[in-house]
Amino acid sequence: MDLLGAYRKMFLIRAAEEELAALYLREKIMSFVHFYVGQEAIAVGVCDQLKEEDRVMGNHRSHGHYLARGGDLKAMVCELLGKEGGSSKGKGGSMHMIDKSVGFVGSTPILGSVTPLAAGTAFERKYNNTGGVSVVFIGDGASEEGVVYETMNLAGLYKLPLLIVIENNLYSVNTTLSERRTAGYDVQKVVEGIGLNYRRADGNDYHDVAAKAGELIDGVRAGTPAVLECITYRHMAHSAPIMDESVRKEDTLDVRKEKDALKRVRDELIAQGDQAGIEAAESQIKAHVLDAISFAQAAPYPAKESLYTHLYE
């Protein structure tokens, strides 16, 4: 396994999000945004198990999923800035990432509703017998929508090649799990009760995510859909780059720093003896991010007429 490669992807997501957060604070960026900082090991750990033909869908917090899958950084930043060259031509904004050239087939912010759509992308694979799996990333909050459980049953019944990744960052906005769920709420029992495979991973640990995603995806390819629940920490506030320390319960700033997924992989790489290599990679990626941001800032806005285009194909 290429740990440096994984670190590079995680660092790309972190650096891009941090620079974009800083940009949001400096300038009026008119796109509703949710940053992924803290959850990088999940997107990268899962996407590292996928093949080229596999598909990924995401939610309102999908910059990381898009980048982990290899989505175009410049197109992403352009999209946030509402530019013509954006991944959705400026029409979608931050909550609507797409890059079909790398199998990232769309992200949408209506909680839960992307789950059956992802099942549909898996259905198409099965129907056409072309192989390939679909992965959908949703949050712990979204997983409380009824349609998610309906989709689990449907996927199990039709044996769809679908992996649902629940990124459990302990909150829906500022509402904790215990404020939303019964004391005995057991995702594993629910999922296994429906007949799907389930694993729970430490979402702050790249190795754990990668290993468990790998096991589940083997089963998914063989016809048993699955749910991977990853426990993680979102480092920034729900929908803004500012911090929200007063609402944090177990995931205080100290704990988040200590368990930080990037730090863990970085320490491991350093222990293997390549500090200089890591630092070189980091400064190269940072430059790449800054370059994408300047590119997007200078890029043209869509022409007025494009307000009316693309309603139908």
Partner: peptide, 9 residues
């Protein structure tokens, strides 16, 4: 048409 995101639109 749906309301787009870009301020230009």
């Amino acid at each position: 048409v749906p309301c787009p995101t870009s301020t230009a639109l």
